[in-house]
Design a binder for these strands. Structure first.
Lengths: 208, 208
DNA sequence: GTCTATATACCGATAGAC
DNA sequence: GTCTATCGGTATATAGAC
């Protein structure tokens, strides 16, 4: 008889998700097989199917687990003291550090934007991102009341995410340097760009 | 004997790539099988293998074909007449329209950023994007000489690409509207954001 | 809770005829 | 240039013992 590797079903499920999350983040849904996951955990395929009914459910539970952890990572920055500029700066820094600190979350998000159907996108938007996006929306309204808040909120998070997204190809592009990948450098660049624009005073003072 | 569907090998290759490009864009490398592609083209698997040695080569040739078409789409906007603001505006509009006009190119690019190894990213950077990126770099240097040009160039294209990337989830996020997906709306928003920043005159004049 | 063994389908790739 | 037929491997998923 095979000895029990995990005492409770929850332990086994957690161990499986701990392996499946990075695998799905790196290789996508169809790039990961049940065999890969079960081998990474150190259990048989049948054992994995004992805990998850099918591959799709395993994927969705992986997404769920990976995303639920992050929902609390960004507390409401609108409730912190300070001017609107300070709160914007704080949000950008926190969001950049959060996203660069956990690559799995960002990679899974990007893959979902590519692969998910409308029902799953709706689920993500309404049950995962809604609250956090609303915070950015409020910040955008306060800082730039005349502009479309939705477009502005997308731009704020998009600037940060795209810099992280292009990290692997940067060093091969002209004038790309290693330091461009540091969260603090990205956050500072995004903050200055957003607050001052390109043309003010003949160009940004990125050395500030 | 089976009748010849294509007279020349080039015709067959073009027909195959015409089907494989959108399939790879939508489903990724491991989400597409040789069977899918051959069925979509209307030929047998063996015929496909007569034109391409293996699946990986088919994928790389698909990328190559899809990307080569776009290299000329963006002519050097720095050589057009007008002020730097006008040239920035022109670049943003052209780039936005180019990217929203051919979803396959953008989707393949995003998938490559997720899936490609370093050698393929280097190939993409140096043989596909180098020249165009250099143009954006020059524009960034001229417009914002005090700021890091690399970071600024990434920000300019990133703003546009992220708005397109999030198109499918927008309508499910707070205050998302259908018109936010129009290329002209995105381009105008990006231009105003870049040139004026968030805080100037108490907020952007997005209605201009 | 975990296993071995197996069912069934699909995968990438090839052989050889026409 | 295209096909049918097929190989060996792997995919997801299940049955049933312990």
């Amino acid at each position: 008889m095979a000895k029990a590797k995990f005492t409770t079903s929850q332990d086994a499920i957690t161990a499986i998700l701990n392996e499946s999350i990075p695998l799905f983040a790196k290789n996508g849904f169809s790039g990961v097989s049940i065999r890969h996951v079960s081998k990474a955990v150190g259990i048989s395929i049948a054992t994995l199917y004992h805990h998850f009914p099918d591959k799709k459910t395993l994927y969705l539970k992986s997404i769920e687990r990976a995303f639920s952890d992050k929902a609390e990572g960004l507390t409401d920055v609108n409730n912190t003291p300070g001017t609107k500029e300070e709160r914007l700066k704080l949000f950008i820094l926190r969001f950049t550090e959060l996203m660069s600190g956990d690559p799995n979350f960002r990679l899974l998000l990007q893959r979902e934007l590519l692969d998910a159907d409308n029902s799953r996108l709706q689920l993500l938007a309404e049950q995962v991102f809604k609250e956090q996006f609303q915070n950015v929306l409020n910040l955008a309204k306060e800082i730039s009341p005349k502009c479309d808040p939705h477009l502005m909120a997308i731009s704020i998070v998009g600037l940060i995410l795209f810099h992280l997204e292009t990290t692997p190809i940067r060093m091969y592009l002209p004038e790309g340097r290693e330091e461009h990948n540091q969260p603090e450098v990205i956050a500072h660049h995004v903050y200055v760009l957003l607050t001052e624009g390109l043309l003010k005073n003949g160009g940004l003072k990125c050395s500030d």
